[in-house]
Amino acid sequence: MAGRSLYLSILRNKPHIAFVIFFSLSLNILLTGDSSPSLDLIRGKTLDIFSFLYSPLTWVKSSFLLEEENALLREKNLRLFLQVESMLQLVSENKRLEHLLKFKRESKLTLLASKVINKGLHSNITSISIDVGSLSGVGVNNPVLTSSGVVGKTILVADRSSVVQLLSDLNFRLSVRILPSEATGILRWVGRNFCEIREVQKNAVIEMGDKVVTSGFSKIYPRNLPVGEVIGITDERGSFQKIISVRVNDDLGSLINVFVITDQSDELD
């Protein structure tokens, strides 16, 4: 009799019991999911499957965008050609000066080209999946960039695909330097392709249009990778720091191709 009433009570409260169970389960996954190696393994395997399923769509999408991208690249190519011409002269001058100072610095970065497979199914884009994984030499925490600058880092690596945490993710922070003042701070995303640097000393001389590059203080990002440019400076009353608004070079919502830095070695003599 008691068993029957218990059974009836469970049946009557089925939605509430299900809610308590699944709410607790999902909360547990939310709290432990990002740091669970066993879950990472499952995520890696399913990511490979979804990347495979998504590949025809990526192909269709890139075919649509091919012509537009081609025109953009031709224009960019011309601009870069002109830039290279002037830089070649600077390089020879730089080499001459370095030779005079007996200074040698060489930075080697191994770049791996990859295609964006999908941008997840969430209502906001905070990560992307790319078509290279551990089989291509990608590891966790490899910097990801485009020809315009840093866009994120790899956070989950499967055999043939990886998840990239974008600048637009709340948990993403980037140590940056503002040129030419050399002021440093931590960059965080605020919306669309805008970011803020908050920990900048008030006495740093920063102008609109100043370039923002990686500081090289972090173990993940090498020095001087382009990030964006200064578009606003706010002095906070009663604070020793000022807020620098930065526009990042890329529209994070429309990434098609990215590069992963799989190996970085700095040689300083």
Partner: peptide, 24 residues
Amino acid sequence: FFLGLLVDFTGVGSFFGLTSFTYV
């Protein structure tokens, strides 16, 4: 719950399980 997990499995940088949590 299960759709949320599936959505998160398609690739999410952080807060894995958040979609399940909100869908539930």
